[in-house]
Design a binder for these strands. Sequence first.
DNA 1: CGGATCACG
DNA 2: GACGTACGTGATCCGA
Length: 944
Amino acid sequence: MADKQHLYLVDGSAYIFRAYHRLPPLTDPEGTPVGAVYGYTTMLWKLADDLDKADGPTHLAVVLDKSSHSFRNEIYDQYKANRPDPPEDLVPQFPLIRDATRAFSLPLVEEPDVEADDMIASYARAAQAEGWDVTIVSSDKDLMQLVGEKDGARIDMLDTMKSARIYIEEVEEKFGVPPEKVGDVLALMGDSVDNIPGIFGVGPKTASKLIAEHGDLTAALDAAEEMKKSKLKERLIEHREDAELSRVLVTLKEDCPLPIAIDDMKLNGVPSEPLAAFLEKHGFTSLLRRLETGSGSPNRATDLNPPKQETKGAEAEAGGNSQPLPELPAIDRSAYECVQSMERLTHWIERAGAARLVAVDTETDSLDSIRAELVGVSLAPGPNEACYIPLGHGGSDMFAEKPEQIGKAEALAALKPLLEDDAVLKVFQNGKYDLNVLAREGIAVAPIDDTMIISFALDAGRSESGIGGGHGMDELAERHLGHTCISFKELCGTGKKAIPFAEVPLDKATEYAAEDADVTWRLHAMLKRRLPVEGGTKIYERVDRPLVPVVAGMERHGIKVDRARLAKLSEEFATETKRLEGEIHEIAGQEFTVGSPKQLGEILFDKLGFKGGKKGKSGQYSTDQSVLEKLSGDGAEIADKVLEWRQLAKLKSTYTDALQEAINPETGRVHTSYSLVGAQTGRLSSTDPNLQNIPIRTEIGRQIRDAFVAEDGHVLLAADYSQIELRLAAHMADVAPLKEAFAEGEDIHARTATEMFGEVTRDTRARAKTINFAILYGISRWGLAGRLGVEADEAQAMIDTYFQRFPGIQKYILHTLESVREKGYSETLFGRKTWFPRINSKNQAERQGSERAAINAPIQGTSADIIKRAMVRMNPALEEAGLGHVRMLLQVHDELVFELPEADVTAASEAIERVMAQAAAPAVELAVPLGVEIGTGKSWGAAH
DNA sequence: CGGATCACG
DNA sequence: GACGTACGTGATCCGA
């Protein structure tokens, strides 16, 4: 017996998931999750401790899943397709599991494209063939197929969580059949977790009965013809192929090549030094103490349920980072290379391919990604390992000599396979820009990561200054790397003296461009690892990251505007403003600049002597809309004329003139640029031109929307979420009457009026509407009083009534504020964080401002998450519906605008409505329906 | 370049 | 006793 070898095969991946769910969510003082690691460590400890016991291991190896891909995916593309991502706080623990295994000096088997189950099966059979006993440390039902005895060598299983051995009897008890028939049972049952189809409607009971009766799967399926008429019979016949496919999928592959010989898995006791280092590093002090005192096997009960006090406090006290960042070398610009030959370019492309990750940056001659011409590309497959590939330098001065560089077409042809390679991650800072530039060169870059978007997922709201809210590269480099990038200004100059990037000498251009790629690579290394630890993975991976190429596509499509129509409006507005200006001057008794609030204020309040002039902190009279409306109410004709003048001047300068200039001469369309990090709440913002503030509220402004048109034979389709923020408030604050009203499709403001005032009139409904919005924005009695034109007392009474009728609202507000004060950030239903660094400010105004924003952010942000999810799903859904030519053009916070052939309106409306209405699911199940209103027309105005 | 104003959700 | 009153944006103009 002493000579009997006994191999233990630990199913590490399966263990980790179970340990994660069974053990308390331990964290170290820095908040790094270590619960599953702790469970795993104690399990290994216990196994190693059994070394000299009967039935204990003489040999041991840990088997982990390396990749999710295996031969089963080749057979069945849906295999494991529905599997959810691992929990966010488990992800950072995976690498620690490897560290733990190494600390025990245990062999680790981890093969690409082979599932752990197959590897375990192959090792078990190999050991069995040598006459060894085998224990599989797992409780996976698929592995139960292996249990049994052959030639005096036994395979059994050990469920360490239940401290239970699984032999043939246990398998028979569970499945009603011996282990060799378990595969047949599994094939009938299917498996929803692995997405194995099985036979619909057949569960474990029916499956084992069928196999027990008929002997095996084929016999059971053949027997179906003879069965008496039943649902089961029909299903067995109809889904026979599914069952046969499932049989192949559940069959373990027992002849995988073995990377480590079984003899090399011999256990030689646990070397205490590396283990001690590991335990100390991760703060497992009680285990460390045991190691040092050499006290025997850990007690089983405390092992599986570590005492809270010990694990939460002392156990995790040592802390430290879960994934310490390897020291990066300081940035050294002299290490950068200017690539001027195909030979060198090939070298860099091969290097990037081997690294599997490369930071990329493009240099162009314009900030507008739709007009920009590519001037060069930089690559960084590692820190200080960066190059710049000039492609379009020189040439603007016909006397200057063009520097030596690879032809653009040739270079891009060589880069294209790398940039489109699924296996190489391309890292960008603001990748949407580069995606557009490269898409116009015929390169569809994927997959990508974006350091700007990662920064936003982690730190939205934390920094208030700077372009892009503190997520621009220069700021990120300062903040995270302590590095000052070469500024574009010092390279190209500014204002009139500015030179295009293409005219920057190659040595300078290389330093600048390669540095950008290098910095991007480093930022990625710094920031990406924070995502799982700080709860940013879900929103980044599921929402913002996949959105980047979608929005890039929308920007490239652009939208057609009718230039002649705008020009005509411009002319009309010009005539009108001129006429008004004359009349205003006449009333004023002098000429002045109507567009100057300063001059206007002096005319109104000093010269003409109107009352109600308030000076702000700038010492200037306020002349805004509310002031002028008040004067108009007092009979001041000049105020009306100024208001009208302002409206027309605004429309002309901001819209009818500017939009004409924004038409891209090549495409004939207007291409806005969306910022994915512009709004702290997670909304998009739109610039150059801003297409999210095109007039609609007034009749005169609405004419501008009519200038946004579809191509011939096409129409525009506008799909709006109706009252989405109020719906979300009803859900998030759990307001029964509001939820009910939405479920019934009632007029929500009318319902609020009923609840508050007992009756619905034009007046009470209007008040209710104001109050509803006030709630979303964080209310104050003075603010509401101002809006409603009542005294603050009365406004306060209304707020009280509101809270009384909808008590969930008050609770939501208090709870939200409490949480933001404590944690420093608010969160949307989908986990997007917005930070409020001033929420505890001593400055009352500052603090209250943050409070109002913090009340609003989860609602506005959740709405943004939902429409973003709809956008991410939209193109695949349209594609699937045979509507691949329907183009999504614009997003206006709660509205999406599409362009499509007239003939497709019905089908497209249906598909778009469905995607938008279902966009929260399955991540969040809302207690209110999401209403979507759709309109179509030849113009945007007509589509509403 | 900051403030005032006003366009949108 | 003063604070300064609804959330989130971007473009334009004026005037220092």
